[in-house]
Design a protein around this nucleic acid. Structure first.
Length: 481
RNA sequence: GGGGCUGUGGGGUAGCCUGGUAGCCUUAGAGGUUUGGGACCUCUCGACCCCGGUUCAAAUCCGGGCAGCCCCA
């Protein structure tokens, strides 16, 4: 390996030191940067533009299922935050507080929202009076702050992150759950369909559910470092918050009832997941559907032919303008440009030199493939969408393969520990118990219950792998960020 | 939550043990010759994480802080 060359690109290897590799990817592909606040990163245009795309596409899906956007304040007065008991207990340790403005101490300290239930629901209790006011399906795109004390990891564990939060209100449980599943389908169009992130959708145990929820379901994704990423979520809150914040309505019979509520989120963690899942030792790999610039054109210039090559390159650029191509006309060597745009994750590279011009073709290199191919100029417009589609599909299928190949099943404790050490997701029989889950963590070095078996495989006669008592269900466990 | 390691121009590093001139590679900027996988030459800009201590003198030694990485819970 040529030391000189590698300094500009990534030095760490994905399969040797994942964290270091990911950090270098963040910095060198100009996705993010550290700041003076530990655990708070800059989203640079390379990653923020993708976040904007997520917002744009998610909003389109949301519109189809009646979600409306709005915005609530960043601050939550302490007395509001503490209204729902489980909720406040779950978040209290990580809340950042504002206690002072200028030189004046505040009468009541203000929480910086770790999530917005406590500031949104008092308004809901004012707004909702009649069954005609329902359903209320409100969403906001915003930032939240959770002051974690674990080691921060860019995108995956940051103290401030960006997300959307849907807070929806329905008359009945059935209505709430039907809509909740629609939201997950909408999210999946973004995460699976556009970001090429496969996942397993499953319900959390009592111990792992959202603070204040009746049940929580999340989509889980596996990264090559063995960590499971908890993705988009669906919390069904039942009447819990309605009772705490007094959200009631009169139904068609004039009877007063509590509302049923859901919350949902997608966060900037999915950006990190997408970057980490698909990228390689050369740099960033972005699924074409999420790439801002889908093509880079590199002119291969020989002395005396500059004009011809550049003119052709510009012509091709114009022809392919709907793919938002970059044409690099700088005088750097082609090799340097190749490396640069591989680091930046441009899906398709087009090479144009005198030879290509003569044969009326161009050289094509897909970011995720080794082989270069040639395509006739007149076929370009027709074939590029196919190539992009192929790349999108390959990335998704590779990720899906990784997810599927890293699952194991056992009812023996020693084997479970071995599998966890081998960075696997493991399916095990377990008892529904907080204590059991705590012991599971300490015996496996931190693996937690991810979700209850979505297929509901029979647990008849199985013993809990931790306590030895009769098991309640099969669960999947693994280490998470 | 516990332990270990590290912090030097934009990136990668040497120097630190044994205190005294911050060296190298690269990027960036300028000019020239080049251009089919990180070209070459010349010139230029640019750094000792922060606070304190020891000392005639601190990148170097000591203390504290902050930040990052690794391992364990």
């Amino acid at each position: 390996m040529d030391e000189k060359k590698s300094q500009e690109g990534l030095i760490a290897k994905k399969n040797e030191n994942f964290t270091e590799w990911f950090t270098q990817l963040m910095i060198k592909s100009k996705l993010a940067d550290y700041t003076d606040i530990s655990g708070c990163i800059v989203l640079r245009p390379a990653s923020y533009s993708i976040w904007e795309k997520i917002i744009e596409e998610t909003n389109k899906e949301f519109k189809k299922i009646g979600v409306e956007n709005g915005y609530f304040p960043l601050f939550i007065p302490e007395k509001l935050l503490s209204k729902e008991e489980d909720h406040v207990k779950g978040f209290a340790p990580e809340v950042a507080w504002v206690t002072q403005a200028g030189k004046t101490k505040l009468n009541e300290r203000l929480a910086v929202r770790p999530t917005s239930e406590a500031i949104i629901y008092p308004s809901y209790s004012k707004w909702i009076r009649s069954w005609r006011d329902l359903p209320l399906i409100f969403n906001q795109w915003c930032n939240v702050v959770r002051w974690e004390f674990n080691n921060p990891v860019p995108f995956f564990r940051t103290r401030e992150f960006l997300w959307n939060e849907i807070h929806s209100v329905f008359s009945t449980k059935e209505e709430a759950i039907i809509h909740g599943e629609k939201v997950i389908k909408a999210y999946n169009k973004i995460t699976e369909g556009l970001m090429a992130i496969p996942g397993i959708y499953g319900q959390k145990t009592e111990n792992e559910k959202f603070a204040g929820a009746v049940f929580t379901k999340k989509v889980h994704t596996y990264l090559q470092n063995g960590r499971v990423i908890e993705g988009v979520c669906f919390h069904y809150d039942g009447e819990n918050f309605a009772k705490a914040y007094g959200i009631k309505f009169q139904d068609k019979n004039g009877e007063e009832k509590y509302t049923h509520q859901n919350t949902h989120a997608i966060t900037t963690r999915m950006l990190g997941t997408m970057f980490a899942l698909h990228s390689d030792d050369k740099g960033l790999v972005i699924p074409p559907k999420m790439a801002t610039n889908k093509i880079v054109i590199i002119p291969l210039i020989f002395k005396g032919k500059e004009k011809e090559v550049l003119e052709k390159s510009r012509e091709i650029k114009k022809m392919l303008s709907k793919f938002n191509p970059i044409l690099d006309e700088t005088e750097n060597s082609p090799g340097r440009k190749f490396a640069q745009y591989e680091l930046n994750g441009i899906p398709i590279r087009i090479e144009i030199g005198p030879k290509e011009i003569e044969k009326k073709e161009v050289g094509i290199k897909l970011r995720n493939e080794k082989e270069k191919i040639k395509i006739k100029e007149h076929d370009l417009l027709k074939k590029i969408p196919d190539l992009l589609e192929k790349m999108q599909k390959t990335l998704y299928e590779n990720a899906k393969k990784i997810l599927e190949e890293n699952q194991k099943k056992t009812d023996k404790k020693s084997e479970m520990i071995k599998f966890v050490n081998e960075k696997q997701i493991v399916k095990i029989p377990l008892k529904n118990s907080v204590e059991v889950e705590e012991n599971l963590k300490s015996e496996t070095g931190g693996a937690k219950v991810l979700f209850i078996d979505p297929k509901n495989e029979s647990i008849e006669g199985k013993k809990c792998i931790i306590s030895g008592e009769p098991a309640d269900y099969w669960v999947y466990i693994g280490k998470t960020y």
